[in-house]
Nucleic acid binder design. Structure first.
Length: 342
DNA sequence: CACGCGTGGCT
DNA sequence: TAGCCAAGCGT
């Protein structure tokens, strides 16, 4: 259980009042203006948005004009910004607002979130900034600031971490909900910087910040990427000679499972004819080849999909080490991946 | 929940 | 030069 965030509210609001940047979409709290800017700013840097925002509002100054815009004209306004479904969703939402809400912009978080392209963050941003509804708006900046303040080592890339932070912020949302949310984001962007040293000497939350006090601002936030594993298919042989000994070999002394032993295997899945040929190249004479089982083994960075074959051969050779099952179990380190096939 | 969606800036 | 990274939404 971490302690309440409530002590950060006042210093943060005071700092924001002194330091907020002047930005085109901060000139008023028109929901339409805030909406367009929030959508454009999704995954997109402020500098990139600047030019587009002014041009977009000039061409489409309100919900009604957006709801009627020609698709090509709309995409032309978005050309180069990326994530084009954002633009298509804007128009869809404008039509919904026109048809379902009589052209009046929904005000409640719960209603905003129903609109196409408006998710948890954007609904929170519009509801708080335009209407001071006490809902959080948790983006990457906010996650970083809160993780450091709390000294939390939770992986901020996990949805669960965002949920937890959202719940904690809900409890402390002040009257000035919009200013508070903007302040957290602004602090993240201007002071509580992601890379290199954050500007802790000018941070209004310094005395409330666990990461600062413990010198952990470089370690926090924790961002553990989910490793996207490659897939490798393997055909694995359990080869037995007339004495019932099993063929194994030693793996190279570098790389994956270095220095351990393994059952003979080849890359990929193969037809019976191909399997015969592989064994022949190993100078083995198979009496029969029987598919036994398949198994999957997950490493941190690779998934092995294995098909195992039991092969009986006429005689052993020197290409492999031939061992009894007992000796294999007791004397040779065999990775779990291969144990699964025995 | 994991993935794909665009682009530009960084190393 | 190519690869990594950003941190919202819909599916």
């Amino acid at each position: 259980m971490s302690k309440s965030l409530s002590p950060i509210v006042e210093p943060l609001l005071n700092w924001f009042d002194q330091n907020k940047r002047v930005l085109p979409w901060r000139q008023d709290k028109e929901p339409y203006h805030v909406w367009i800017s929030e959508i454009m700013l999704q995954q997109t840097r402020i500098e990139a948005v600047m030019g587009y925002y002014a041009r977009f509002l000039e061409a489409l100054p309100d919900v009604e004009s957006l709801s009627k815009v020609d698709d090509d004209a709309l995409m032309k306004l978005w050309e180069g910004l990326g994530y084009y479904s954002r633009a298509r969703n804007l128009k869809k939402a404008a039509i919904v607002i026109t048809e379902e809400y009589g052209g009046e912009f929904p005000q409640a978080f719960i209603e905003l979130k129903k609109l196409p392209g408006i998710g948890e963050y954007t609904a929170g941003a519009i509801a708080s900034i335009c209407f001071d509804e006490k809902v959080p708006a948790v983006d990457g900046n906010v996650l970083r600031v809160i993780a450091r303040v709390q000294g939390s080592r939770d992986n901020v890339l996990l949805p669960q971490t965002k949920k937890t932070v959202t719940e904690q912020l809900k409890k402390i949302m002040p009257q000035r909900a919009g200013a508070f949310n903007e302040a957290l984001m602004e602090l993240g962007e201007l002071v509580c910087l992601p890379n290199g040293a954050p500007l802790c000497e000018s941070c209004p939350l310094q005395e409330h910040c666990t990461a600062y006090k413990k010198g952990l601002t470089e370690q926090i936030p924790v961002r553990v990427k989910k490793m996207k594993r490659k897939r490798a298919d393997k055909s694995v042989f359990m080869i037995t000679d007339p004495d019932g000994r099993i063929a194994i070999e030693k793996r190279p002394d570098t790389g994956l499972l270095s220095g351990m032993y393994q059952l003979p295997n080849v890359e990929g899945f193969h037809t019976d004819d191909e399997l015969q040929e592989i064994l022949r190249q190993w100078e083995l004479v198979p009496i029969d080849i029987v598919f036994t089982k398949e198994a999957k083994h997950v490493f941190t960075h690779i998934d092995w999909y294995m098909k195992a074959y039991h092969v009986t051969v006429t005689e052993h050779n020197d290409r492999f080490i031939w061992v009894t099952e007992d000796k294999l179990k007791n004397s040779y380190p065999l990775p779990t991946a291969f144990q699964k096939l025995l």
